[in-house]
């Protein structure tokens, strides 16, 4: 355990964890768009920035992204200084200029009292805020199907060479983790479409309910050594089967005990 000071209050934090986790545990609302526990922090949204100092720093302060800064003993953290609030407002205005239609951004900006951006709205802007959550989750999955291509303002998340990603398995992790819901997908009958690719959805052998894509199931079987039989039924039918099997065992056991 490490003792740090957050907004004047001495608190305990776990060794090796990042400041953001310690701050959020205190119930302090620090906004962040690119942070997710399942992925490596990358510090791209800059909203979680906090001001840190230490007694021995003699008044010198430093602004750091709390999602990336590991806790250190004796750290004094301020999360809502006037400067940080202004920084967050500026960043939210920049977001609002690019992703003016995004409800998540609008809501977040509203919380900071911003209804419109002082900057000209970018005409070809979209809801992608380039937080890399999708590419990072894809890396975490081990697929590396999508990545950020190009650089600077033209940067886009896409498959290699701006083509549909051949390594994608249609698991939807990227779509679910996207903070602004920019990654679009569609399930139609037994076909799932995402990243301009189509995937076959597995159907429950008994009731026909769609589960996950065949590619994803095969990936799990291979990577995690799971039998194919596990993926044949949907969860509802699997429970019914479980009840039947357990019931049979119970009946059989009762027969033996008689």
């Amino acid at each position: 355990m490490v003792t740090i000071t957050i907004n004047g209050k001495a608190v305990q934090a776990n060794e090796g964890e990042m400041l953001l986790a310690a701050i959020r545990r205190q119930g302090i609302d620090t906004p962040a768009l690119c942070h997710h526990d399942a992925i490596e922090p990358c510090g791209s949204c800059r909203l979680c920035m906090v001001e840190i100092t230490k007694k021995e720093w003699e008044g010198w302060t430093r602004s750091v992204t709390s999602c990336l800064y590991p806790v250190e003993p004796g750290l004094i953290v301020s999360t809502h200084t006037p400067q940080l609030l202004e920084l967050r407002k500026t960043i939210l205005e920049l977001y609002l200029a690019r992703s003016s239609q995004s409800e998540v951004i609008q809501k977040m900006a509203e919380d900071y009292g911003i209804t419109h951006s002082s900057f000209p709205v970018i005409p070809d802007g979209d809801d992608c805020i380039m937080c890399y959550a999708c590419t990072r989750i894809c890396e975490e999955l081990g697929c590396f199907a999508i990545s950020a291509v190009d650089r600077g303002h033209d940067k886009k998340v896409s498959g290699p060479l701006r083509q549909p990603p051949p390594d994608c398995i249609g698991c939807l992790s990227c779509a679910h983790i996207c903070p602004t819901g920019f990654i679009k997908w569609q399930d139609l009958d037994s076909t799932r479409t995402i990243w301009e690719r189509q995937f076959e959805l597995l159907s429950c052998r008994t009731c026909g309910k769609r589960t996950i894509t065949r590619d994803f199931a095969e990936y799990l079987m291979k990577k995690r050594n799971l039998p194919a039989a596990y993926f044949e039924l949907c969860d509802d039918c699997k429970r019914t089967e479980t009840a039947k099997t357990m019931g049979k065992i119970v009946v059989a056991a009762q027969e033996v005990l008689k």
């Binding site: 399942a38 983790i177 699997k238």
Partner: peptide, 21 residues
């Protein structure tokens, strides 16, 4: 750990007893 879950549904598809919901 809800904070780490991205709802990819792998557990639901994989649980042989249908107990991930």
């Amino acid at each position: 750990d809800v904070a780490r879950c991205v709802k990819c549904m792998a557990c639901i598809a994989a649980c042989p007893f249908g107990c991930a919901l």
